[in-house]
Design a protein around this nucleic acid. Structure first.
Lengths: 203, 203
DNA sequence: CTCATAATGTACCGTACGGTACAGTTTATA
DNA sequence: TATAAACTGTACCGTACGGTACATTATGAG
């Protein structure tokens, strides 16, 4: 007798949305129950406590949230600047999504009091390694100055997020950044990065 | 009968420390009272509510927290790389302090539900403008490639924080980064920045 | 149909917290 | 020393929340 998987996911999705909106402490189990339908007893059949439910939400989401960002990075026809610009726009657009921002706020807020931060960091590092692999290939091909590819990957991301992400995270703007603003940010990040990693032979 | 200023500050300091340690919701007014000495009635004589007390802590701290980072930026004897490296180390060391990390977590966590994020962002932007002014002078002197100084300032900060700050913010390491790690991070940030902003004449 | 399992609604428990009341005490000034 | 403001301790109120109990109803498998 198992509709349970579907129901479990439904509870998870509902809870996750409310956690994002209200934060951990301000979210009540009754509220989640009301939004998900059913009763509190059912809720507690699936998750033994509020803490565990929250954790499950976070784990679930770190698995799904960042995927798809690196699509098209391996297009052999595109040159390095084009690939980076395309990746930059895609990633930045995803990172500035209200959902992702809210999730990041949650993770950071609870990082000091649970292992969730570590988990999140490991997940993102996995993506950074993908980017690093791409950069290493470009370095080997002579398209970029040789150096530590993982460090270069982090620097690229840093340049991408430079000003725009903190503003969003702090809620300094009402609306998410426009498509134009994202393009601009990605472009200047790519420009700076390519200058910093121009192959020496180009001098 | 006014010892009130001193007492008020004492309450503020105590509350701030507990907020940092436990977060907003998990901190109780009774706990603050016990730590600060005195009684809850006194506490409520100084601050009308928990929310206001928290806000007052945050405002108080954004005023004091970032100051002193830019000391020595205007040393006329130092060249640009030296100045940037020195600033980078100082700033990074301050930013990775447990107190500042905890504060940043608090601000980010509450950013969605109060104006505190905006306030914090404005304060930091004020410091970024100082850095931008320095960079503009360097650009005018021909020591750096010309460009938008404020954007360059944000990019420098981004390179500084590149990998190390998120790891700290997410609690991915137990200990704050070693002095050596900070030096390394600052150095690679300065290197990348100087390559990206090398004056065209140097080519 | 039968029966075990899961879902529901409701009512409830214990506790903890923000905030208040109040009676009594300190303390600075005049 | 008189006095008024500020402080203290304690006890308390109302409420809200996490979690549980339970009696009842749906649901699917054999």
């Amino acid at each position: 007798m198992r509709k349970t998987d579907q129901k479990r996911q439904h509870i998870l999705d509902t809870a996750y949305e409310i956690f994002r909106r209200n934060g951990f402490e301000k979210t009540t189990m009754s509220e989640i129950t009301a939004a998900a339908g059913g009763s509190k007893a059912t809720l507690y059949n699936y998750f033994p406590s509020k803490e565990e439910l929250f954790l499950a939400c976070m784990v679930d989401i770190t698995d799904h949230l960042l995927e798809g960002i690196f699509a098209g990075l391996d297009d052999p026809k595109a040159d390095v600047p084009t690939s980076l610009l395309s990746l930059g726009k895609t990633a930045l657009r995803a990172l500035c999504t209200p959902e992702l921002l809210a999730s990041k706020r949650l993770v950071i807020a609870e990082a000091a009091r649970s292992g969730i931060g570590k988990l999140f960091h490991e997940k993102t590092q996995q993506y950074m390694r993908e980017l690093a692999a791409f950069l290493r290939r470009a370095m080997d091909a002579g398209d970029l100055r040789k150096g530590d590819p993982l460090q270069a990957a982090y620097q690229f991301r840093a340049l991408l997020e430079a000003d725009i992400l903190e503003r969003c995270l702090l809620g300094a703007e009402e609306a998410p950044p426009s498509s134009a603003a994202i393009s601009r940010a990605a472009k200047s990040a790519v420009t700076a990065f390519l200058r910093a990693y121009a192959p020496e032979s180009a001098l």
